[in-house]
Design a protein around this nucleic acid. Structure first.
Length: 207
DNA sequence: ACCAAGATTCTCT
DNA sequence: GAGAATCTTGGTG
């Protein structure tokens, strides 16, 4: 399949919450030196500028959040709990600090490489019980998919739009049933229904 | 300078 | 289901 990288017009066509839904069904591709991995996005969360759970809310510009104010299609990667990282797609025009968190993928290529990356992370000794990771567990959660896809912090503040080796492909199907509900793992702003996922898809992290 | 909390995951019990 | 691992960020003194 040829590279059909989604252009800026896709990312800038929608507000953040609509984009979070439109990203469902799209394929995230990473062509790394170790090999190609890809997966269909099945779960996302929107983070808005008037949303207390958003790192960049209330126009708070810091070193970390600066990329969120960049152009749509910018990559925002951050460290969470000191040991995992989360991958976000920046949305909206420059100057507006909003983004979409990618929470789960349905793997489509490079599953062997995904499993290797998950098993042999730094500081972790593989045990017999962890020797095998089920297909549906490879990218089931924001920290897991970042590891499986080989997304590192050097991709922070890069773009999905041009010559990078990380990009999105358009969905080749229309997700039939999209569910909206409260976001996972947050306290402030938990009542906002900004989490979206494909109903009954077994690769979704919860629910 | 110190401290608490956080968009998580893994390992037991 | 509870607890740990681990470090950046932001608030307070």
């Amino acid at each position: 399949m040829p590279e059909e990288r989604l252009p800026l017009s896709f990312y800038s066509a929608y507000d953040t919450r609509t984009l979070a839904k439109k990203l469902l069904g799209c394929e995230l591709v990473h062509e790394s030196p170790d090999g190609l991995t890809s997966g269909i996005i099945v779960e996302t969360e929107a983070y808005l500028q008037d949303d207390p759970a958003c790192h960049a809310s209330f126009n708070r510009r810091t070193m970390r959040t600066e990329p969120m104010f960049g152009a749509a299609g910018t990559v925002y990667v951050y460290l969470i709990y000191g040991m995992y990282q989360c991958f976000n797609v920046v949305s909206e025009a420059e100057g507006i600090g909003e983004a979409v968190l990618i929470r789960a993928l349905q793997p489509t290529a490079g599953m062997e490489l995904m499993e290797l990356r998950r098993q042999f992370r730094p500081g972790k000794v593989p045990t017999l019980s962890s020797a095998k990771i089920a297909l549906k567990e490879l990218c089931r959660g924001p920290g897991k998919l970042v590891r499986a896809m080989g997304i590192e912090r050097d991709l922070h503040n890069t773009t999905l739009l041009t010559e990078g080796n990380l990009y999105l492909r358009a969905a080749n199907f229309e997700p039939s049933d999209i569910v909206a509900g409260p976001r996972i793992g947050i306290n402030v702003g938990r009542e906002l229904p900004y989490r979206y996922y494909i109903k009954d898809n077994i690769f979704v992290s919860k629910g």
